[in-house]
Each structure stands twice: as C-alpha cells, then as structure tokens.
Design a protein around this nucleic acid. Structure first.
Ligand SMILES: [Zn+2]
Ligand SMILES: [Zn+2]
Length: 728
DNA sequence: AGCACGCCGACT
DNA sequence: GTCGGCGTGCTC
C-alpha cells in the first residue's frame, strides 16, 4: 500500500496543506491525480509518496479519519522537475500564497493541476516497422523497404491503405499516434547579422566580464540598439553551451523581439506568449522539456520555463508593469529571475530606455553593473517635443480637444503625405449614463464604479465584475427619465478630427475596434498600407508599434496618468511619454511630438520632452526619499477583504495593531479604503507596510495569515502584495 | 473553492 | 406542511 500526500487544486489558504490518499499500485510524486474530495471529483498533485505495510483500516484508526483511494493517475511522469518544484515552494513562501497556486502559474494550461477542459493534444497516425522479416508479396516488400528508410505518417505513404493494412496484419509494422507539436507562425523580419558599434561591443564585453550571478542594467535610449546587444549576448552564451531566457512585456501584439529572435535563431527558439493558443503554448512547452530548444522568448510566466543549464536571463523593458503579476501568486518577475539565477549560477541583464528608479539606483550603488547606451545607432537626434500649456489654450478661447499647435502640426503631417499617431489616455473617454435631474451616474450594484456604455451591444457593463444591464429608462436613484449618454469613446475624438483636419482618414485602435483575435494585426497592417493617416488609440498604441511613415505623435492629455494617486505616477508618465514619443520618426524622416498638459512645468513632463532621464532620476529620487518610497524602503500592500464593511474595518484595524506592535522600524500606513472600496460585493481596506528588513515582516505575516486566512473561515481574508507595482 | 447540512421565513 | 435561501463547517 502506498500513502500519497496530495495537494488539492483549490487555491485557498485554508486548503494549503497536503491531504492523505491511498493507492494499491505504486505512484510517483510530482504527477497529477484525479481524486474525490468532499463529494467532488477534482485534480490533485502528489507532493510525496511513502510505502506502508499497514492496511487501510489500520491507517484510519491511526490517523483518526477516513481515507480515500486515488481515483486515477493523470500523468505518467512528473510535470515539474526538481528545480521548479523547489522554486514553487520558495515562491509560495515569498508571496504568502498557496503552493498549488504557484504550481498553477508555472505550468501551461494543459499541465496545470486544475480541472478544466484541456486542449487536445494533436496527434497523427504514424507508421513504425517492428520486424526484420520479409512480407508476402513483392509490392509489399517494396513498400516495407520505403517504410524502413524513414518515418512516415499514414497519410503520406505512397501506397494504398489496403496494402498498409496487410503489412500490419502480418505484424511487420505498427500504426501509432504520434504527438504533433504545433509551432506558432511568426512573421519573418530582417535579422541579418549587423556589425555592432563600438559602444554596443563594449556593453557585450562588459557584461560577459561580470561574474556569474551578477545583474547588469543596460540604460539605452530608444534606437540605441539594445536588441543587437541581446542577440550578441545570446550568441555568446549559446557558444558556451548554455541556454537563454529572454523576457519581454506582455502586449496585445506579438512583440518585435519575438519576431527578431525567431528570425535570427529559428527553431532553437520556443515562444511563450499570450498571443499563442493554448495548444501552441502547450506544444512550445513540450519542446522545452524535450530539450529541443535553447532559447525561450516570452512574457512574465516564461521565467518558469523548464529550460535547463540557463546561462543568461534577459528582461527587456524592465520597467514594464506586466512583469508584476496582479493576482495570486503576486510575484515580481525579477524576484523569480534571481531565484533561478542563483540555482543556475547565471547572469541577469535588465534593459530599458526608462529604467525604474529603483533599478537605476541599485545600479548606481553598485548592486548592479550599469551600462549606458546614450546614442542612437543611426546618430539621428531623438524627436523634437513641444509642450502645450492647455490652460493658456483655454484662456485664448480654445475649448476643443486640440491646441492650435497640435492642429497645425497634424495638418502639416497629413499634407506631407505622412502619418500621425494620437494618444488618448484610457480614463475619461469611456461613455456612461448620467441623470440630468439628480446628476447621478448609473453605477454597478456590486462594485463602487460607474457602468460603461458599450455601443455595439447597446448595454451597460461593469469592468470589474461580470454585471451588465440594458440601458435603463429611468434614473435608479430619482426615477427621472432624463438620462443622458456622456462621452462617446474615441468616436467623439474621431468626429472632432474629421471636422478640424482636412483630408483626415482616422483609424481607431481601442477595445471596441480590436476585440477579436486578429483585428489588431489587420488594423495595423491597414495603417501601414496607408489606408489611414491618423491612428487614434489608448495606451495600447504606446507599446511596440513601429511605422516608418509616422512622423508626428500627439498626446492629447499627459495629465491623466500624472494625477493618479500612486507613488509611481510621475515615473509612469515619464515612461509613457518617452515611449510614445519614440513612435515618431522611426524611419528616414525625422519626427516631432506635441504633448498637451495642464502641468507643463511638472518634471515628469518637462524632462520627458527633453529626453533627460538623468535629471528625471534625480528629481524622482528626491521625491521617493521625502515620501519614503522605494528604493528607500520595500513595500508590502495588505488588502483586507470581507462581505461586510463593518467586519473589514474592524479586522483591518486589528491587523494594523499587530503590525505596529511587532514591526519596530517599519512604517505602517492605513488602513484606508482601497481605490475601489466595494468590488464584486466585497469591501476592501488597504494597509501599506514600508519596511527595510523582510524577516520580521514574514514572521508576523505568518501568524496573521494563520489567523485571518485559515481559521476565520471566510468571513475576512487578507491578501499580501509584496513589491506592488501600483497602489491603485 | 464548493458541497452538504441545517435553520428559518414564505408560500401552497 | 414543504420549498428554498443563505450561513457554517469541512474536506483525506
Ligand atoms: Zn461590478
Ligand atoms: Zn436621477
């Protein structure tokens, strides 16, 4: 008899321990099993196994509870290797999240220990010769010879199905299902080898000269050729017989880097990115476990790729928010990268035009090696940026979306036959329903948010839960029938442009126009083919677009990200403006940028316009020091949740009390209501812990987690978010 | 997480 | 007298 200690699939702290199951046949640790758990058939993961000579009844008396048998084995082999299992355990501790949730994020959909519909593993009938004997007829022997020469799929053997059947009957061949790995199609891009500039060479040599396990930061302006540096580094590491993980931000388009690496390194590359279907992801994952690839390119979760002998981990655009996972387990990718780098004794390279000030500070302090690429490869200057003070614009009587300068620049661009990109910020452009009598907006009954109007479905929807309703006839609070639609999404801007710019052909790039899977690509292709001359979009267009005919970028309002109640507000504004400005003048023609703002003197805006990271860094560091934010401390956000607002307030106060009592040199802020207090019918209070020493923080969290997440039986719960990227 | 069980109010 | 809504406990 075998005793298996099994983790159940539910990601809950109360169930974050193993349950004992029995098996008469030997079972392996590390495989998934189907089990009955509290009247439900669910999936479990075997943590470890022991042999016993005792019977079920004896064990039940010993343990004091009834035991159940494992229902069925799902896998033949462990789904994770030793390194990744121990990584999952460390991650679970570091993020204070259930171990099973860590196993689940690390694996592709098909291999997750979770009961969901699995995508089909694609197979084809293949033929294998299993005997050296001769067949009966000469025709059969002829066929047999051909089959011996190489592997065939049933459908491309140049003989009839009947003849194959005869061979099978004679026991000479066998027909079996062979797993076919789908390889995602990636557009080929020019990746011909380029000679590195002297400064690029210096960076590559410099990084290769650093000692193993060290971290390097490449600060390179847009167009400084970081990509070539990554490629050259990768080449060197491959030559040393080691493998490479290349991480890129998660964006709705296939990132350029994916295309470049795939074109350059071909089938040595596996891609793990959200643009892949579940089937493709699984197949790419299998190619990694089968050691068929040496490079993995992918977004955040690619840091968990089962690659062995890792010699280098690269994080491109290291400042990007997608490197932080915003649900359980809430991990920071760099944190995981460091764990893997330690086991593989490999280097980490971070790259960005606008590094996080924390990263830059660490580099300046000597914790990371700092490499600067201050010049563009083509020696062309960065686009010229003008800032327009919208306050003066309003004083002059212009209340429209666009300043005079914006309009004239846009018109000039179009008159020259070139293209422009206009960036709208997300908030403020959604439409909603408002009562003109009592001024109330229609809100979600489950969340503290305004419902947004979706034109194509003619319904109001909540962005935070799945609530939706048809447009009401009367106001929910005063029953007046005078309801008005406010805002028109990006459509209103489109109309404005049409009426102010001659020959404007506008294309909108937003949630409405890019909802189905390939519509982005189609839309962008159309824009590249000059079917439109103005591309209007939300922040989605700031990332990764590369059109050589775009010579003008307009930012309608730089203030929306700036005024967010978040310690990164300035930094994100600086990053966004730098990034979107980089879309202008990427080809031969030089570009320009206009930024509209009510805060023209704010350092994030003024310095982004001058492409001056160094001074931005100084200003931002001064603010971080004054307000005590990273890198001057570490952050932990604790969100306390409950269905009852009274319970949540009381629990949050209690938790704060415990934190204050046991953390002497940490600063505890709050509790205060989370940005959206009620969400999905649960009320949320937030406590912010600013600490230097992590040890005592983990110690107190362990007991708080024990009490609030395991014993309190669902009334309240708390979620820990270490190193939060945003506090909203 | 999600099912069973039990308690209580509403409705045949 | 019975149906079902929700709060509570528990899962090998
Ligand atoms: Zn809602
Ligand atoms: Zn009203």
């Amino acid at each position: 008899m075998y005793i298996a200690h099994v983790l159940v699939e539910h990601s809950s702290h109360a169930l974050d321990r193993s349950f004992t199951y029995l098996s008469k046949k030997p079972v392996k640790a590390g495989v998934r099993v189907s089990i009955f758990f509290n009247h439900q058939r669910i999936v479990g993961y075997i943590l470890n196994v022991e042999y016993t000579s005792k019977t079920k009844e004896e064990l039940e008396i010993e343990y004091g509870f009834r035991l159940a048998y494992i229902n069925e084995l799902i896998d033949e082999e462990p789904i994770l290797n030793e390194e990744l299992l121990s990584l999952a355990k460390s991650l679970s501790k570091a993020t204070v999240s259930p171990l099973i949730s860590c196993l689940q994020v690390m694996l592709p959909g098909n291999l997750k220990p979770k009961s969901v519909k699995r995508v089909a593993i694609k197979t084809l009938k293949a033929i294998r010769v299993i005997s050296d004997e001769k067949a009966k007829t000469s025709k059969q022997n002829e066929c047999l010879e051909i089959l011996r020469s190489k592997d065939f799929f049933l459908h491309d053997v140049p003989y009839s199905r009947a003849l194959i059947s005869k061979l099978e009957e004679q026991g000479l061949i066998e027909i079996y299902d062979q797993e076919i790995l789908r390889t995602p199609e990636v557009e080929n891009v020019d990746s011909s080898e380029v000679l590195l500039t002297d400064s690029q060479k210096k960076v590559v040599e410099g990084i290769l000269a650093t000692k193993e396990e060290s971290i390097s930061l490449i600060h390179g302006v847009t167009g400084s050729g970081k990509t070539e540096v990554y490629i050259d580094l990768t080449r060197h590491i491959l030559e040393q017989g080691k493998n490479v993980i290349m991480l890129v931000p998660e964006i709705s388009l296939t990132p350029m880097m994916v295309k470049i690496f795939k074109s350059r390194f071909g089938n040595q590359v596996a891609i793990l990115h959200s643009r892949l279907s579940a089937g493709e992801k699984y197949d790419e994952y299998r190619r990694i476990t089968r050691k068929e690839v040496r490079i993995v390119v992918g977004a955040r979760s690619a840091i968990f790729a089962p690659l062995e002998d890792i010699g280098l981990i690269i994080m491109d655009e290291e400042h990007d928010s997608s490197y932080k996972q915003e649900n359980t387990p809430r991990y920071a990718t760099l944190q995981v990268a460091k764990m893997r780098a330690r086991t593989h004794k490999c280097r980490i390279v971070l790259g960005s035009a606008t590094p996080l000030v924390e990263s830059y500070a660490r580099a300046k302090a000597g914790f990371y090696h700092l490499f600067e690429l201050p010049e563009r490869i083509n020696k062309k200057p960065l686009p010229h940026v003008d800032i327009v003070n919208m306050e003066e614009e309003t004083k002059a009587g212009n209340y429209g979306y666009m300043s005079q300068l914006m309009k004239s620049r846009l018109q000039e661009t179009i008159d020259r036959g070139e293209q422009a990109i206009l960036l709208l910020n997300k908030r403020g452009y959604a439409s909603f329903i408002k009562c003109t009598d009592c001024q109330e907006v229609v809100k979600c009954p489950h969340c503290d948010v305004t419902l947004t109007y979706h034109k194509n479905e003619d319904r109001l929807k909540c962005h935070y839960c799945d609530f939706s309703m048809s447009v009401p006839r009367e106001c929910p609070s005063c029953h007046s029938t005078h309801l008005k639609k406010i805002g028109y999404g990006t459509q209103r801007i489109e109309e404005y442009i049409q009426s102010h710019i001659v020959n404007a052909k506008v294309m909108r790039f937003d949630y409405d126009t890019t909802r189905n899977k390939n519509s982005h690509t189609k839309l962008l292709k159309a824009f590249r083919n000059k079917e439109a001359n103005i591309l209007v979009g939300t922040q989605m267009i700031a990332k990764g677009l590369d059109f050589e005919n775009v010579t003008f970028v307009g930012v309608l309002s730089a203030d929306l990200t700036l005024t967010l109640p978040d310690y990164r507000a300035s930094e994100r504004t600086f990053q966004l403006l730098t990034q979107v400005a980089g879309r202008s003048g990427r080809g031969e023609k030089s570009g320009s940028v206009v930024i509209q703002t009510y805060n023209p003197d704010h350092y994030a805006i003024a310095l982004a316009a001058k492409h001056d990271y160094a001074h931005f860094y100084e200003k931002e560091m001064a603010y971080r020091k004054l307000a005590n934010y990273p890198p001057y401390c570490h952050l932990l956000a604790i969100v306390v949740q409950s269905r009852s607002d009274a319970v949540v307030k009381r629990a949050a106060t209690e938790i704060k009390y415990h934190l204050v009592k046991s953390l002497n040199d940490a600063q505890i802020i709050g509790p205060s209501e989370a940005g959206i207090f009620k969400m999905k019918d649960t009320y949320r209070e937030r406590i912010l812990v600013k600490y230097k020493d992590a040890k005592p923080v983990y110690r107190i969290l362990e007991s708080l987690n024990d009490f609030y997440n395991k014993k309190q039986n669902g009334k309240v719960s708390m979620v820990c978010d270490f190193h939060p990227y945003t506090l909203i």
